[in-house]
């Protein structure tokens, strides 16, 4: 900090009264800095965890997707998604669960990686061919938890899109509706 006033004695008194209050700290509650994908295998295969990290939120530092998703062949997985704001330790996925009727996850993937659901996902077409394990109060899917069967081999990409659709989430609302809270694309391989 530099002192400015030595040249301006006349205004010294006025300037002494001219200091501002420090603003109160604010918790940036809506930023997601760590996205964790937990692939648990009910059949007993090894559970797998993959992370994407963006330590500065809206800063210019790029998001880093730590590693490629590698899944075992012909295995059933339950995917649960954890969203964390590491700047203040808040769980964003809890907030999303509380507002399930305003949120929905959409998924898309390279055809041939999963035997079920089949196809390439519901980002580009509205028909729900994802196996959602959770629902909102209106019986519409949410997607914090989903079920997947891998094929015997394949590779490509896996995209997760979280939409905030306050007042506009219906049985017909697709991935073009609402504001994007999350949009991540992982490389994926089944081997």
């Amino acid at each position: 900090m530099k002192t400015c006033c030595y040249r301006h004695f006349i205004w010294l008194i006025l300037i002494l009264g001219c200091t501002t209050n420090d603003p109160a700290p604010e918790n940036a509650e809506e930023i997601i800095t760590i996205v964790t994908l937990n692939f648990d295998a009910p059949g007993g295969a090894l559970p797998l965890v993959f992370e994407a990290v963006d330590p500065d939120g809206d800063g210019p530092q790029d998001l880093v997707i730590e590693d490629e998703i590698k899944l075992a062949p012909e295995t059933q997985y339950v995917l649960t998604i954890d969203l964390l704001n590491s700047l203040n330790g808040d769980s964003i996925s809890e907030e999303v669960a509380e507002e399930a009727d305003e949120h929905m996850f959409f998924f898309s993937w390279t055809d041939g990686i999963f035997s079920s659901p089949s196809g390439s996902g519901n980002v580009n077409n509205g028909s729900s061919d994802v196996d959602y394990n959770d629902q909102d109060v209106n019986g519409l899917p949410l997607g914090l938890s989903t079920t997947w069967f891998t094929t015997n081999s394949g590779s490509g990409t896996f995209r997760i899109l979280l939409k905030h659709q306050p007042g506009s989430k219906t049985g017909d609302s697709d991935a073009t509706i609402g504001e994007t809270d999350l949009d991540l694309t992982w490389n994926i391989a089944v081997e």
């Binding site: 006025l14 001219c18 603003p23 109160a24 918790n27 940036a28 509650e29 809506e30």
Partner: peptide, 19 residues
């Protein structure tokens, strides 16, 4: 100029006093 606390978002502009 004061930011009123409680926005739960990073400050877009700082506080200032100006003569």
């Amino acid at each position: 100029n004061d930011n009123i606390p409680g926005t739960n978002t990073p400050l877009f502009i700082p506080n200032y006093a100006q003569y």
